[in-house]
Nucleic acid binder design. Structure first.
Lengths: 121, 121
DNA sequence: CTGTATCCCCTCAGATACTG
DNA sequence: CAGTATCTGAGGGGATACAG
């Protein structure tokens, strides 16, 4: 009794659908980084030191496929690839802000302390 | 270079921390169901037909452990166990509403249609 | 610089069976 | 009714090597 199906996967509610688009460990941090500026692959890698090469690559491909970011390849040597947020991606930013704020509140409640408050995403 | 640690796990940003508390497939749907009324185990199971016995059990335990819900056992035969949302849990509701709304918007954008709009969580 | 391909481990989650 | 225990399979994600 699926409630609805998208891309061969069954979803039971809108929350789950949203989380499958922009959830996971890295999608929101990446969208957040791109919210006001275009970045190239190596810039993103620098800003997200903990992400592995493979993960960054695959998450970027996924976000592009689903229309949250665009990818622009410059025909130069060495290669230069720039990622920008789309209108669809921009609509996710306010949601990410709400979750960020809630997460920060929860961290205070739980007594968790960040080493660098502005390093997060 | 962890940004912060909680419960032996490393987090890199508040979004990730929040999602580890109330993310996943079932936590938000359960909190949402409990937002305005107490439910017993079997009620929750009925309202979330797709969740397995094991998952419901383990997610409830986790939500209780982290203070989002409370569990009250009535000493009767057969057993009766009631779950209620806590103040901490209630603070998650507005966030869930934002994500729900966003998810519904995304579903429209992606052309996904729910069989029952009010079946979701 | 910007990727892709392989190998591999480990956790998540389902099915099933058993208990107070 | 309300759980717990065990087994198992699929997939996420890391490390590493290779390519245009």
């Amino acid at each position: 009794m699926p409630d609805f199906v998208y891309d061969k996967k069954v979803y039971y509610n809108p929350v789950e659908f949203a989380m499958d688009r922009i959830g996971g460990i890295w999608k929101m941090p990446i969208l957040w980084r791109l919210r006001e500026k275009t970045l190239r692959y190596s810039d993103l890698k620098k800003e997200l030191p903990h992400i592995t090469h493979k993960m960054l690559s695959s998450v970027l491909r996924n976000l592009e496929k689903e229309g949250f970011i665009t990818r622009k390849v410059h025909a130069v040597v060495p290669p230069k690839v720039e990622y920008s947020i789309t209108e669809r991606g921009k609509r996710a930013i306010p949601v990410i802000e709400v979750i960020r704020r809630y997460g920060a509140e929860l961290m205070r409640e739980f007594g968790v302390k960040a080493k660098e408050t502005e390093s997060g995403k």
